[in-house]
Amino acid sequence: MSDALAGLYQQVILDHAKARTGDRELPGADAEHYERNPTCGDEITVRVVMEPGTDTIRELAWQGDGCSISMASASVLADIAPGLTLAELAERTEAFRGMMRSKGAGEPDEDLLGDAVAFQGVSKFVMRVKCAMLSWVAAEACSTQLVAKVR
């Protein structure tokens, strides 16, 4: 198979697309957001539960339907979100977005992004960037709701 394809479908991505983290309901969620990519029909609902009285995420779960890139990206996000404060999640979201906009040129921060650096190869495929961003955008909307609640 071509190198380009292997660069896109890193093993980490293929693994997360199959054995998904956080792909389930989350009763009693403090925030919930549905996001859709109208061009391809991919959709996802991200839910977040916070540690009571804090701005730290206890759990992030999601349910959706889409390609391996969007599903694997949600799975990785569900892996790294617990224990992060909303500000820390925002920092990682910005780093992830920057990587996705790099068209393959960026040097992602592995300490910050963990397994999410596997999506670096996706940034060369402009048609697939929105797939990778879908769950992160939904989580960002959840954060906005939570910040508004705290205020």
């Binding site: 071509s2 380009a4 394809l5 391809c40 029909g41 889409g66 890139i69 495929f125 697939r128």
Partner: peptide, 20 residues
């Protein structure tokens, strides 16, 4: 998913449409 099918075929030079 259809997008993955299309991407896989594209790597072989095969242009198809994916989506709804």
């Amino acid at each position: 998913h259809a997008h993955d099918v299309g991407q896989f075929l594209d790597a072989q030079g095969i242009a198809v449409r994916v989506g709804h």
